[in-house]
Design a binder for these strands. Structure first.
Length: 612
DNA sequence: ATTAGGG
DNA sequence: CCCTAAT
């Protein structure tokens, strides 16, 4: 195969990924892995965790307001029950399976051009003392006339590259057409064009140090969209890694992250990430476009926000509403789990829930006096989120995109009305801050959220039951688990800061050696399914093990085969019983033979008739 | 989205 | 485990 060394797509900002165009589908998210990246979800949560402080013009620290409603839908567990029946097991010699070619359908070109316009100042702040402050809070200055949509961006902007903007302010006076409202956007091609342009430009080059603002000098904004997605982190990670290789440090990381979001051309993985993100968001966040982000995050906070024809309810002056979000509190998560489940399982479950919630797409809701503000086009002033109003009564909620499913075993109390006042009342909480012992050492925050590698000690079957059993249990045993991010909790510490040495976002997955039970399960599954059906293997034996993707399984098998073929003395790590290794070799031999036959059969023009 | 392989 | 190419 061609030796392609890492291409640095970075500096050009082309739209086309250096990678040969593969059907867009190729860049989709890896389902299996999607939620797997242990940390990202937490990063996001941590990022968003906490309290909302609302101040007013004079930065009078208003009482913090806790608001967080988080809903989530059931994790789509639509694992199509594929019949493994027709699969010839190793034992029951059967030739079958034509390798069905997957006809990929090309999706439309990158629609996911997220412009993460970041202005130089913001960027520069990174690494500065200022960024530190940003760690635990995000300040948003929003012109009163600003769109509430901005609030959303506020949240979004929190994470991304791990560097919450110390101060984001919005202003339309940047000379750029205001593209906040959908209408505006639709009617203003300029917005799009501009946004796109910005996106294009905001490439590695730019980020790599040149800080030219996106389009307008004023603009300092970027639009972090789906930080929640683990893939994003990955995306960042790889970008960052690459960048690091090239050099640069501090700014580098910023650049990396930003780049990823802006650049159209990204590696497969990156694209996958973005695409995934967009898939979900698109429907709901139409209003959230690069343009809007730009407008929202534009620097000149003091500048007037042209309010055409608007009828300010709170006065005509251009007060800026300063909202300081210290954190979001994650509301109740009810998890039912059998008593005999292990603590590790519990942790994993919680992690999965959190992850799925995040991955399912989050959206921010704004509540004023307990009432949800639905109209995104309303100005803050119109919504009475402005000077003179009781800003203490504004709350932000995290809601999930509709249509998603939550993890099995987790249910959302029907009565839970996040939009209601109840959402604000204190919840029973259980801090999930205890790091896993084994991960404590040497690893960072990421480990904290990882599931115990040993959870597999339970049979795969039991793992399944673990989730399935929960469905109808009474809530008696259910527990409200609410990761709370208090200033002192570790959760917040997780919040990445740009200056953090180890950009959480780009963290590599934690290494989790396969346990013996896992290996056994893998071997068993492969014996039945063969070596070319990793997805099936995954579903058969690791369906509930989120951190093992089919790629992981494939890789593990590869190492197993290798291990089996070397002398015991050369083997490292947890020893694998020779018996198991023998099975590995046997299965490997058997299935490779099968593949050979299939291939030869095809070559001879017999198609799959012989095997199908 | 998967699979296959190299790194 | 990661990254890519090819399906």
């Amino acid at each position: 195969m061609v030796v392609r060394k890492r291409l640095d797509y970075g500096s050009r900002g082309h739209q086309v990924p250096a990678m040969p165009r593969v059907p867009s589908s190729a860049r989709g998210k890896r389902s299996a892995r999607r939620k797997k990246d242990e940390m990202s979800p937490f990063d996001l949560l941590a990022t968003v965790a906490g309290t909302l402080l609302v101040d007013h013009e004079n930065s009078s620290n208003a009482p913090s307001i806790n608001a967080a409603a988080l809903t989530y839908a059931r994790k789509r567990k639509s694992v199509k029950a594929e019949q493994y029946d027709d699969v010839p097991s190793l034992k029951s010699i059967a030739v079958e399976n034509c390798i069905a070619g997957s006809g990929g359908v090309c999706a439309s070109p990158r629609q996911a051009n997220i412009c993460l316009a970041e202005n130089s100042s913001t960027r520069n702040e990174c690494g500065s003392s200022r960024s530190l402050e940003a760690t635990n809070q995000v300040q948003v200055q929003q012109p009163m006339d600003g769109d509430t949509t901005a609030l959303y961006s506020l949240v979004s902007s929190v994470d991304l590259d791990g560097r919450p903007p110390a101060l984001v302010s919005s202003d339309s006076s940047s000379g750029v057409p205001l593209c906040i409202h959908e209408k505006d956007r639709t009617t203003s091609p300029l917005c799009h064009a501009e946004a796109r342009h910005a996106a294009d430009r905001d490439d590695d080059e730019n980020s790599s140090g040149c800080t030219h603002p996106c389009t307008t000098g004023n603009n300092k904004s970027y639009m972090p969209q789906y930080t929640g997605d683990s893939r994003i982190r990955k995306m960042f990670a790889s970008k960052i890694r690459k960048a690091a290789r090239n050099k640069m440090c501090g700014e580098m990381s910023n650049k990396g992250s930003k780049l990823n979001l802006c650049g159209k051309k990204i590696s497969t993985t990156r694209q996958r990430v973005q695409r995934a993100m967009f898939k979900r968001q698109k429907p709901v966040r139409r209003h959230f476009t690069p343009s809007s982000a730009k407008g929202i995050l534009t620097e000149a906070s003091g500048a007037s926000f042209s309010v055409e024809g608007q009828n300010p309810l709170c006065g005509s002056e251009d007060y800026n509403v300063k909202l300081r979000i210290k954190s979001f509190t994650i509301p109740e998560l009810f998890i039912e789990i059998p008593e005999n489940a292990t603590v590790g399982s519990l942790k994993r479950t919680v992690m999965d829930v959190v992850t799925s919630i995040i991955e399912s797409g989050l959206r921010v809701g704004v509540l004023l006096q307990g009432k949800s503000i639905q109209d995104d086009n309303k100005t803050l002033r119109q919504a009475r989120i402005c000077h003179g109003e009781n800003l203490e009564n504004i709350d932000f909620t995290l809601e999930c995109e509709a249509g998603q499913n939550s993890s099995p075993g987790v249910r959302i109390p029907e009565e839970m009305d996040f939009h209601g006042a109840d959402a604000m009342k204190p919840l029973a909480m259980v801090k999930c801050e205890e790091p896993f012992s084994e991960t404590k050492a040497g690893y960072n925050s990421q480990q904290r959220v990882q599931a115990s590698p040993n959870r597999v000690q339970s049979e795969h079957g039991s793992v399944h039951s673990l989730f399935e059993t929960t469905a109808h249990e009474a809530s008696a045993s259910s527990q409200a688990i609410v990761p709370v991010a208090s200033p002192s909790s570790e959760a917040l510490a997780i919040v990445p800061v740009c200056k953090s040495k180890r950009p959480v976002i780009g963290q590599r997955r934690i290494r989790r050696p396969f346990s013996l039970p896992e290996v056994e399960a893998l071997v068993e599954a492969v014996e039945q399914l063969g070596t070319g059906r990793w997805r099936d293997v995954k579903m058969l034996a690791f369906d509930n093990t989120d951190h093992r993707t089919y790629v992981d399984l494939k890789d593990k098998w590869k190492t197993l085969v290798h291990t089996a073929s070397i002398s015991p003395q050369q083997r490292r790590g947890e020893p694998v019983p020779q018996g198991l290794l023998d099975r590995v070799l046997a299965a490997q031999a058997y299935w490779s033979q099968q593949q050979q036959q299939q291939l030869s059969g095809k070559a001879s023009g017999q198609g799959c008739s012989s095997s199908c």
